[in-house]
Amino acid sequence: MTGQDWISIVSIIVAGFTIAIGSIAPALGEARALTQALDSIARQPDAADTISRTLFVGMAMVESTAIYALVVSLVLLFANPLLP
């Protein structure tokens, strides 16, 4: 096993862990936001427009954390700077 082999192995394993661990917190956060929004819409159906609009934008902000993890793992897999 050369050093390059070890770099590939570690990169692949770390890429898997990155996306697995990195998507836990955003998933929980989005679920929480969604339940709150559904709760509010059930209480006040009149405000459904405003709530769902804000929900979309807020979820996009929360989701960007997961997207960062995805981008890092994609870089590790397909554009690894340490591998030739």
Binding site: A60, M61, E63, S64, I67, Y68, L70, V71, L74
Partner: peptide, 13 residues
Amino acid sequence: VALALRLFGNVAS
């Protein structure tokens, strides 16, 4: 950066 990465990440993935 977040704005760029969000659009890129969603479409590319």
